[in-house]
Computed example of a mutant assay.
Amino acid sequence: MYQLSTVRDSLDLVSINNNLVDCSAGAIVDWANQQFGKHLVMSTSFGIQSAVMLHLVTQIVPDVPIIWIDTGYLPKETYIFAEELTNRLNLNLKVYQSEMSPARMEALYGKIWQDKNVESLNLYDRIRKVEPMQRALKELKAEAWLAGLRQNQTKFRQQLEYVNKQGEHYKILPILRWSSRDIYEYLTEHDLPYHPYFDKGYVSVGDWHSSRPLSATDGDERDTRFHGVKQECGLHLPLSNDEAQSLDSSQL
């Protein structure tokens, strides 16, 4: 159906994305599996619509390592939802946490998620999310990373393609151009659940202290995260050289 390079270090992303533009989400997952094999991983947040990607990918790559970053501040309902989906879909789940415990972080830096400024929130995300994710990618020898980002979620995501390069890894986004209706129809067709917070008015959920239900004044769903100060937690943003070096766990 499409001819792609087999040399991963020299992938022609323009050609690849042009070839994938008319492919289904499943075909994109299948391409990623053929291209990267045992070096392919997936990430999940067990958020509102996470069942879609978890089901879609594991129908094609049942044993793909699935990285879940547990910040230690997730709602009780998220932990229960994660347990239920893990058992139902027989997930090969790999749970990673910061090497700095929540108690130690609060002792050294305070409850920095309460500070409604980008610097404090970025520090929180670097400690609790970005460092463990980078460690997971390294330990699992990942070359490529499947994620459920969609273009209609944030301004940053509007510029993404199906296959992107983020640092040393390829980021593959099979449902990038899916609409909310596509998500709903997939969940319904396969009898998959939303996160329990969906019934409470949430359209996106992360940590309990920085997620809230959607309101009439919100411009988009990501305004309900991080006190409306920012839209991205850092997991899907490229790191500068200085940021990459700062993630050395000995410096935390």
Rank of each mutant, 00 (worst) to 15 (best):
K116A: 13
L252T: 15
L149K: 03
L89P: 04
S249H: 09
L89Q: 07
W113T: 05
S250Q: 14
Q151A: 15
E232D: 01
S45L: 08
S45W: 01
P193W: 15
E189N: 06
A32Q: 02
E77M: 10
L11W: 11
D70F: 12
V52L: 07
P196D: 08
Y184G: 00
H169S: 08
L13S: 10
L85P: 06
S250G: 10
F36W: 11
Y202R: 04
T86L: 05
G167I: 05
A144E: 04
N164Q: 10
Q59W: 02
K111N: 11
Y124V: 13
T44A: 15
L108R: 01
K200L: 13
S45G: 11
V57Q: 09
I172V: 14
V205N: 01
R135C: 02
V64E: 03
V203A: 00
R177A: 14
I48D: 02
I127G: 04
A244S: 09
L11D: 07
P238R: 10
V14Y: 05
E161D: 14
F36Q: 11
S98N: 08
R128A: 14
A32D: 08
D22H: 14
I175S: 03
K138T: 12
Y124D: 13
S43E: 09
L91Q: 06
Y170T: 05
C23F: 08
T58W: 08
D12P: 12
L137N: 05
R181T: 15
K200R: 14
V203S: 01
Y184C: 01
